[in-house]
Simulated scan of single mutants.
Amino acid sequence: MASYYAIALLSMLAFSILVATALDDKELKATLYIKQSFAQDQRPGGTDTVIINWPIKDGPGDAANTIGHAEGLTTNANPAKPFWVTIMDMVFEDGSLAGSSLEVMGLHSYKNINLGQGQWSVMGGTGELTMARGIINYNITQEDSASRTFELCIYVYYTPLDAILALGDVGRKP
């Protein structure tokens, strides 16, 4: 009989921790831009693979501020299809998200395929964006032989770092 009480107590404790963390979730909705310069911000990493370090901007024009970089890899896994698999960390170095990052993965294509639109998954984050999850809808707004501009509409839920640190204090002696 005591084991039933223990199971019930542990279940209630687990549920209360889940509810407490869910209530602490925050939402990030932002529009940012990535400027992909083919000759400047990326280098070959092998056949059909490119190492990227694309600037993240707070606006679409040349006067926009660089607030971070999208760093990672993009590879054309199937040369018969012009889709690139991209795995990157969006590392924020300036602005309100400075010191945070988003871990992003997904496909992108050339502007003439799917009208230059697509979606990437957000599978994690660091700093203020800890435990981020969500999506990034993108639209290629400019493309020529030298560069491409992505407009990113970011929709992310995350648990602020303070909320996670507070959970770490549970069960500690003062």
Rank of each mutant, 00 (worst) to 15 (best):
A20Y: 04
V19K: 13
D169G: 05
A77S: 13
A80P: 00
E151P: 01
G134Q: 05
K26E: 14
N114Y: 12
I164H: 07
T126A: 06
T86N: 12
Y158H: 14
A14F: 04
D25W: 01
F15E: 09
D144R: 07
L9D: 15
T21I: 13
Q42N: 09
L28H: 02
R172L: 15
D24I: 01
L115A: 10
I56E: 07
G124D: 04
R172E: 13
P82F: 03
L10K: 04
A6G: 03
G72E: 10
L9H: 11
F83D: 11
I7A: 14
I17E: 05
A80H: 04
P79R: 04
L167T: 00
A20R: 05
A146I: 03
G124I: 03
G171H: 11
T130Q: 14
R43W: 07
G124S: 04
V85N: 08
Q117D: 05
A64I: 02
S121L: 08
I17H: 02
P174R: 08
K57S: 01
Y110K: 03
I67W: 06
A77V: 14
G99Q: 01
G168W: 02
S37C: 09
L28P: 01
K111A: 11
V19F: 12
K29M: 06
D89P: 00
L165S: 07
A70P: 06
R133T: 02
D48P: 00
L107H: 10
N114K: 09
R172Q: 13
